[in-house]
Design a protein around this nucleic acid. Structure first.
Length: 600
RNA sequence: GGCCCCGUAGUGUAGCGGUCUAACAUGCCACCCUGUCACGGUGGAGAUCGGGGGUUCAAAUCCCCCCGGGGUCGCCA
């Protein structure tokens, strides 16, 4: 099978000493001592030192003189223990070397545009243009191997529990979902388009109607929206759907999956078990976010009642207008400078809140009891009694030397600001331990949200989510009070997975669609296939879909999912290796019945 | 679309009004070198400082516009 090689470079160890081997790989580095040349030969499994000695092979040395970095070469020789004192403990193959008897350059290489054999930050554009070289670098290679192990683990895990993998179409139908669709024009049907799936949501539900009971798929999902560090035009999710399950069944399955995944693949990461479970309302009230980073506390304290008793007009006005007063503690930041405080204020303003009230609790030491009003630095200071300051500090679990960050106003405005403050302070104070991976469940989301612009109800998660049984009567009277049977997995401040128990009753589903503003004709043309399917014995079912890219990113300790995707796109949705997207020929357009419009 | 950050030899950085004829490291090329492993030594090539305009006696450096990239808000059911 392997005509060019008998072993991989990285697998050779002491036990191979004396073996005659053939290796093939890339020149990682050449060390030319004149009469003696060392070539570090690299393949996917690792690096091994090969030695070219004129006393063994004069022609081999001559060939080695021609070799340069990234040349592809084959060597044949004998594995030998390195001379005493020349072992290299830094590499796994460092006890041995290969004494080359015969060699051959299989292919030359241009000098790479960036270092492949060193870990240096390189401009990402350049890396993406030459992604095939970037992927040779150890970090990227490890990320791709990790990704493989993760998906392999997931497949094995689900297979062992009776799930079957089913492939679903990439060319399908545009339906009014949350995101913009990627459209593919039809040649056969002039003027009609396929849409790439934003997720296999409807398909997996139809597979439940089909009776597969437990389905999964490593599924590619497409959304034509702006990218982020954790968002790409196409991403991969572990798409899961099960029949005859409750929310707890799915959450338990996920906890087991992620716990065993981390313990098997990244045992060095500290995992918090069991996963904490928060309701959506709790998550917002405690962390200001429905995807809180649970690696640190910095919880939000409600100060509304205390603030209402003060003489500080700004806070009292906010409360009189139906607002709340909330704060978090920045530990040890009591001596922040005016400009540092102003930076935080700008963050709060950018988040849409009215402004930030800071209360500095002096210098460290002495405890709250020793605090004097003189030490308290705040524009609110003269409106507060010492007792009130202490009460506020106590509520925020703050100590002397800390900084209180207080925001007042409508909940919609202040929670995003508190969320930003919380994450910013955690970043500054390095509160998020990179050795910790903190999962959590968030449950009981509102089913619907009012779109401010259109005034229409929109699904907070997706239109197929089943309302909580007890809330169904509210659908007619008070839709905003209806909670859904949906749940997220959060991890280190990311939304890692989202799922729900689905509606399996055609009438209830039709009711939801009507509530979302569709008339019956629209419902039938857009979702008729789903409603009809539900009338043929749809089992109760539910599912979830964890993001694979985000999972691997977290396990790899990377900051963006681009680092764990082989060929990712830039922020402007381009593939720099292929320079896609690109224009097509007039003939191609004509075949698709498409005429381009001049941009103004 | 808004806000913020970045753009200097192949790569990574320094320089932030004049001493810049742009520095350093590495890579590259040539020569020397038989135990290195980020080998070492000597020499050399390599940048109109993202593009355009302006201010100034003088611009990599200050200002404006544009381009490219990234982060974030909007957006992402």
């Amino acid at each position: 099978m392997h005509l060019l090689r008998t072993h991989s470079c990285g697998e050779l160890r002491k036990e191979h000493a004396g073996c005659e081997v053939s290796l093939a790989g890339w020149v990682n580095r050449r060390r030319d001592h004149g009469g003696l040349i060392f070539i570090d030969l690299r393949d996917r499994e690792g690096i091994v030192q090969t030695v070219f000695n004129p006393e063994i092979s004069p022609s081999g040395l001559k060939t080695a003189e021609e070799m340069r970095n990234e040349y592809v070469v084959r060597v044949t020789g004998e594995v030998a223990l390195r001379p005493a004192g020349t072992e290299n403990s830094k590499i796994p193959t460092g006890d041995i070397e290969v004494i080359v008897k015969d060699t051959e350059i299989l292919n030359t290489s241009n000098t790479p545009p960036f270092y492949i054999n060193e870990e240096v930050e390189v401009d990402e554009n350049l890396r993406l243009k030459y992604r095939y070289l970037d992927l040779r670098r150890p970090r990227m290679k490890e990320n791709m191997l990790l990704r493989h192990r993760v998906t392999k683990f997931m497949r094995d895990f689900l297979d062992a529990r009776g799930f079957i993998e089913v492939e679903t179409p990439i060319l399908l139908k545009s339906t009014p979902e949350g995101a913009r669709d990627y459209l593919v024009p039809s040649r056969v049907h002039p003027g009609e388009f396929y849409a790439l799936p934003q997720s296999p949501q409807q398909l997996k539900q139809l597979l439940m109607v089909a009776g597969f009971e437990k389905y999964y798929q490593i599924a590619r999902c497409f959304r034509d929206e702006d990218t982020r560090a954790d968002r790409q035009p196409e991403h991969t999710q572990l798409d899961i759907e099960m029949s005859f399950v409750t929310q707890d069944d799915i959450l338990n399955l996920m906890e087991e999956l992620y716990t065993s995944l981390v313990e098997t693949i990244k045992p060095e990461l500290h995992l918090v078990k069991p996963f904490p479970l928060l309701t959506y309302t709790e998550a917002i009230e405690r962390y200001g976010s429905d995807k809180p980073d649970l690696r640190y506390d910095l919880e939000i304290a409600d100060l509304t009642d205390i603030a209402a008793r003060t003489d500080f007009a700004i806070l009292r006005t906010a409360i009189d207008n139906g607002g709340k007063v909330k704060g978090i503690t920045a530990p040890g930041c009591g001596e922040y400078s005016r400009s540092q405080l102003e930076e935080l204020n700008k963050l709060v303003l950018s988040a849409g809140a009215g402004g930030l009230l800071t209360v500095s609790l002096g210098a460290k030491g002495g405890g709250l009891d020793g605090l004097t009003l003189n030490e308290v630095k705040s524009v609110a200071a003269k409106f507060l009694t010492l007792e009130q300051v202490k009460e506020i500090a106590g509520r925020c679990r703050a100590d002397k030397g800390d900084l209180l960050l207080v925001v007042a106003g409508e909940p919609d405005k202040i929670y995003p600001a508190l969320d930003i403050l919380r994450r910013e302070m955690a970043r500054r104070l390095k509160l998020a331990d990179p050795g910790v991976i903190a999962f959590g469940f968030v449950v009981d989301f509102p089913l619907l949200a009012r779109n401010e612009e259109t005034g229409r109800w929109e699904p907070a998660n997706n239109p197929f989510t089943e309302p909580r049984d007890e809330d169904i009567p509210l659908l007619d009277s008070a839709p905003e009070k209806v909670f859904g049977k949906n749940y997220d997995i959060v991890c280190n401040g990311l939304e890692l997975a989202s799922g729900s128990i689905r509606i399996h009753d055609a009438e209830l589903q039709r009711k939801i669609f009507r509530l979302l503003g569709y008339n019956d004709k629209e419902i039938d043309s857009l979702f008729g296939h789903m409603l009809e399917a539900f009338d043929y014995g749809a089992p109760p079912h539910g599912g979830i879909a964890p993001g694979i890219d985000r999972t691997v990113m977290l396990l790899a300790g990377e900051e963006t999912i681009r680092e764990v995707i082989a060929f990712p796109k830039t922020q402007s949705a381009m593939d720099l290796t292929f320079e896609a997207p690109s224009p097509v020929t007039e003939e191609q357009l004509a075949e698709l019945h498409i005429r381009l419009q001049e941009e103004e």
